[in-house]
């Protein structure tokens, strides 16, 4: 994908997410430089997914969810009520833990959103679909069966189709919620290679439980933790520094694999 514009910076400032009375994330802050990949690690229930859902405002859809703080994409606060949420979600793509292509044809998975966003020209539609499939390494695998059901693909291919579906909209930020954790090791390695190839062109925020993967892929790492029943960011910084010597002792122990 030829991103005409530079990838943006992403800054999360004092972000809190509550579901009803229950706090899920409290006062989280982190900065992702343009085109870098920030890996968010930490145990289950420490608010990592809540953080992602605030960035593309999927939190709006959860009944009783309250979000406070600031999420700046190129210094524009996406939590501002005046933001066009549909336009925001075109800028901020998301890939989920479970590969979840729609039960439509492979082509239709990608064309659907393009058409809804007003791309009518047949040649442009096909061109952008091919580009997205090329970028995810799927093109040669599926070019002969674009009109076959997407659910006939293998798990790893399905996940790469989900990447292609997001990339076709030419987003600037990508949110990845444990994108490899439902895949077998070989498919996982392929998807990791794909994620690595996206660095520099997109600003990436990736939740993962896999510390080795974070070490391989991340420019920066943030460690989340549960304190007083509520998620928070313990420490964040450049990956190589943080893995060597995190300031927070708890984060240090976690990154060294001493989990208790």
């Amino acid at each position: 994908m030829t991103a005409a514009t530079q990838p943006p910076s992403l800054s999360i400032q004092n972000l809190s997410v509550h579901y009803g009375e229950q706090g899920a994330l409290l006062g989280a802050s982190l900065d992702v430089a343009p085109g870098e990949l920030m890996a968010v690690v930490g145990p289950s229930g420490c608010g990592k997914s809540s953080m992602l859902s605030a960035v593309n405002r999927m939190s709006d859809l959860i009944p009783g969810a309250r979000v406070s703080g600031r999420v700046l994409i190129d210094n524009q606060d996406v939590l501002n009520g005046a933001v066009d949420v549909q336009a925001l979600r075109r800028q901020v793509g998301m890939v989920f833990q479970q590969p979840n292509p729609f039960p439509l044809s492979i082509a239709e998975n990608i064309l659907f959103a393009l058409r809804e966003h007003g791309v009518r020209d047949k040649r442009e539609l096909h061109g952008r679909m091919e580009q997205a499939l090329q970028a995810t390494g799927l093109w040669n695998e599926v070019r002969d069966r674009l009109h076959k059901p997407a659910l006939g693909l293998s798990g790893g291919q399905q996940q790469r189709l989900c990447f292609a579906r997001a990339l076709a909209l030419e987003p600037r930020v990508l949110l990845l919620d444990e994108p490899c954790s439902a895949l077998d090791p070989i498919a996982s390695a392929t998807v990791e290679g794909l994620i690595d190839s996206l660095k520099g062109r997109y600003t990436l925020l990736m939740v993962t439980h896999n510390l080795a993967q974070a070490r391989r892929l991340a420019d920066h790492v943030a460690v989340c933790w549960v304190r007083d029943g509520c998620g928070c960011v313990l420490d964040s910084g450049p990956a190589c520094e943080l893995f060597e010597s995190a300031r927070d002792p708890q984060a240090q122990r976690y990154l060294n694999g001493m989990l208790c």
Partner: peptide, 25 residues
């Protein structure tokens, strides 16, 4: 449950998500 979040994440309106994805699914 399966497809609405993924569809809305693509920035389409709820009505298009229902018509183009949920009903066919």
């Amino acid at each position: 449950r399966r497809h609405l979040p993924a569809a809305l994440c693509l920035g389409v309106s709820p009505w298009s998500a229902i018509r183009r994805v949920l009903l066919p699914a």
